[in-house]
Structure formats: structure tokens, C-alpha cells
Design a protein around this nucleic acid. Structure first.
Lengths: 157, 157
DNA sequence: GACTTATTAACAATAGTTGCTAATTAGCAT
DNA sequence: ATGCTAATTAGCAACTATTGTTAATAAGTC
């Protein structure tokens, strides 16, 4: 997604107002590679701007998605995750802490055995253990980090 | 997943009873490549056995999944889909009708640019138009089929 | 035939998300 | 600077998919 400045211009051009709430979300999302959920964004935004509503967060995320500035992905962690990286890439999901990382593969895998299916998109989800979790695997069964999107533990996985 | 007969044996061996409801679901799932949802299974099952409860369907699906006879996949159509094909394969989802097809790729794509991520699984979801939908694309904007899992239309896509 | 489990109805509850309303606030074009 | 218009908010309701719960009944299995 583009810079907060560019987004402000784009929003105005689209007839949308550039409010402090939206500007905050622009900043929180820009260059954010943690693949946050709406709720985790809301939590962070609330610290910086008490009173901001979850509804507004959802609204702005929807607006940004419709403008093609955000990609929303569903990787089996229960809620939608938002990705400001709209380039062609894939994702690796840690089964232990739930962290999601961007992944680039050399080329899109070919499709076999399907008659006349017109592929417009291919998305790969890798599952396994991220570096931090595989390092602490076995040694201690606790999480190496207990708060935040990047290394909180996931229940039921 | 194994045949209804084998599953009956396996269920008894696991201390689970082989009830008519379960047998029906065994049959409905065996060699079923439509990737049904719990609800679509319930609909079909209800026609053959009026009175069967959705709860029982979920229960049996859970049992089968725990026994490794079923795979549950989430391909962005809102609800879990169940796949009796537990071999290593991938999926193609039609953006128009929602149909899900099994896909086999020659080899798993390699992972680049991630430090020490231990991959245990890779799942590819292809999106696009299935044969039927790409054939009727443009010509008529209605669905070529209006009921059932395989070619009902999807809202919001 | 006895023991145990499954099924069912009939709910409640959950999580994530969206919709709604009315009142207030505030962006922005002129 | 002002007025038009849109955004935000609180406070809900609602929705979908799923799981949990309970008690009564039915029925597999040894």
C-alpha cells in the first residue's frame, strides 16, 4: 500500500475524508509486515487514540481493501488478516505462535489435471514452525513471547 | 477416507457405535469429491433420513477428522469444507460458483527468503473460473445451475 | 438383556464481522 | 469562513458457522 501522504490524496480524490482516525490507521498499516487482524489494529490504535471505535477500524480496512491498497488473507487463524503488501506473494504461518510471514517463491506452481479451469490467482500457505518457535521447541514449552500479534500463542493448534 | 465397511470396523474398534446416521454419512462422504460443507451434507442427509440432526452431522465429521479419514479445508467460501481425499493435494476454487476441485501439482514449490522456518505443510489454493463457469461467462449472466454445492452461485464474489 | 453410547430437541454461547440508528463532530470545497 | 456533507461514535442488533449443554429417548454392542 502507498504512503500515508499518497493515501490522503487518494482518499480525497475518492470523495472520502482524511480524518485523524484514518490517518492513524494509514500510519499503523504502512510498512506493517505483521499481518494484523482488525482487532489487533484496534488495540494498538486505541492506545494512541483512546476512543477510536472498532467499527471505524473495520470501515477503514474495508475502504482500503476496496481501493486495492490492502489485501485480506485468511490463513486459518480464525480471523481475517490484513496485508499492506499487495504484490504477488505467499504466506508462511507458524503453527505454534500464529505469526504470518511473507513468502516469495521463484515461480507459480503449475496446475495439472484440471480441464479448462482458468486460473486467475494462486495462493500458497506454508505451515510449520517459525524460526523463534523452532528454536525454543522442546527446550521450553512456554511461549518465547506472550503478547502481541507476532508471537502470542495460538489456542487449539 | 476408507470404505463405509472399513469405517464401521474402525469405529467399533475405537469404541464408537455404528449407527444408521453414521453409516449414511459414511456413504455420502465416500468418494465424494464435491468438498461439501457440514450444512450441505446435512441437507442431503435429511432427504434420505428425515430427522437427522445437524448436530450429529458435525459430530460425525469431527470424529472422522480426528481419525484422519477426513481433511477439513478453508478456502474462503465462509464455511469449512470436508474432503475425504486425504492424500497430498491442493485445491482450485471457482470464484463464480464456489465449486472446489482437487488439484495435483508436480512438486511442492520451494520456499525462498525465510530464515529457519520449518515447513511441515504447503497448501495451494487456486482461484479462477471452473470449466462450466468460464464456458457460460459473458453469454448469460445467470448461473448454469442454481441448487447444490457444486454450482450454486456465491454471494459477494 | 444389560450396559453404554448416540441421537435428538431445544437452546445458549462463541467469535468475527457487518448493519443500523441518531447524535455529534469535523473535513473540505467554494 | 461557512455550509454542505461525510465520518465517528455509542450502543446495539444480527448474522454465520460452529461448539457446548442438558435431559430424555432410542438403540448399538458385548
Amino acid at each position: 500500500m502507498r504512503s500515508p501522504e499518497d493515501l490522503s490524496v487518494a482518499f480525497r480524490a475518492a470523495g472520502l475524508k482524511v480524518t485523524p482516525q484514518r490517518q492513524l490507521l494509514f500510519r499503523l498499516l504502512h510498512d506493517n509486515s505483521t499481518h494484523p487482524t482488525a482487532d489487533s489494529l484496534f488495540t494498538v490504535a486505541s492506545e494512541l487514540m483512546p476512543g477510536i471505535s472498532l467499527r471505524t477500524v473495520y470501515q477503514t480496512l474495508t475502504d482500503l481493501s476496496h481501493m486495492g491498497e490492502l489485501q485480506s488473507i485468511e490463513v486459518g487463524t480464525g480471523s481475517l488478516r490484513f496485508d499492506p503488501n499487495v504484490s504477488d506473494h505467499h504466506h508462511a504461518v507458524c503453527d505454534h505462535c500464529g505469526a504470518v510471514q511473507d513468502v516469495y517463491v521463484s515461480r507459480a506452481p503449475e496446475l495439472h489435471g484440471l480441464d479448462s479451469f482458468e486460473v486467475s490467482d494462486a495462493h500458497i500457505v506454508y505451515r510449520g514452525l517459525c524460526g523463534l518457535c523452532s528454536a525454543s521447541r522442546g527446550a521450553d514449552k512456554n511461549n518465547h513471547q506472550t503478547k502481541g500479534t507476532s508471537h502470542a500463542s495460538i489456542e487449539g493448534i
